[in-house]
């Protein structure tokens, strides 16, 4: 009888330790994602950059070099320009990206996602983007003074049809 009670007590101790471990590691140690005065600027958009060249008409000599079943008069390259992007806060660059178009022929649209952790407060946000390899300098620009609250996620999106960058 005594040994049975002793064994039950030991079992209770074991179960308690096990459950304490389960409870603790299901919650702790806590993970600090941001400091108290920090916020996140999130760049999230998809965009298909310009093709690297316009369609061109092949000359007779060029056509003759091709196999008979491939002699298309118009040559339209599929490859798209790499996307160049620079984000500055208060005139200080915080992110620079050059993203090649994905796909076997580099002909797909680019998906951009970047979280930029910054101090909360008033900032001058400046975005510079080039999506055409044939043009020097930016093809899109965005400048705005923003007031970011602590813990805020400010999402910067982009839609070429709507004129470029916008804040959400």
């Amino acid at each position: 009888m005594g040994s049975k009670i002793f064994r039950l007590l030991l079992q209770a101790v074991n179960y308690s330790v096990f459950m304490a471990l389960i409870w603790y590691f299901s919650l702790y140690p806590t993970y600090r994602h941001l400091d108290d005065n920090q916020a996140v600027l999130t760049l999230a958009f998809g965009h298909a950059a310009k093709r690297i060249a316009e369609c061109a008409t092949r000359s007779a000599d060029e056509l003759a070099e091709l196999a008979p079943n491939m002699r298309m008069a118009i040559d339209c390259p599929r490859e798209r320009s790499p996307l160049e992007l620079e984000i500055s806060l208060d005139d200080e660059p915080v992110t620079r990206l050059t993203i090649d178009a994905p796909g076997l022929y580099q002909d797909q649209g680019v998906d951009v996602y970047r979280d930029i952790i910054t101090e909360a407060g008033r900032h001058h946000l400046s975005i510079w983007m080039n999506d055409d390899i044939n043009i020097e300098g930016p093809t899109y620009r965005f400048d705005k003074t923003v007031n970011i609250e602590p813990m805020q996620r400010l999402v910067v999106s982009f839609d070429a049809n709507s004129g470029g960058f916008s804040l959400q």
Binding site: I22, W23, Y28, D36, M151, Q152, R153
Partner: peptide, 27 residues
């Protein structure tokens, strides 16, 4: 354990904010 330390949620999901501290289930 469930009675002594019931599982609870964080605040509701809010796409415009980022939580500072999280109680991750490390398992």
């Amino acid at each position: 354990l469930s009675i002594i330390k019931p599982a609870e949620s964080h605040g509701p999901a809010d796409l415009s904010s980022v939580p500072l501290v999280l109680n991750l289930d490390w398992f």
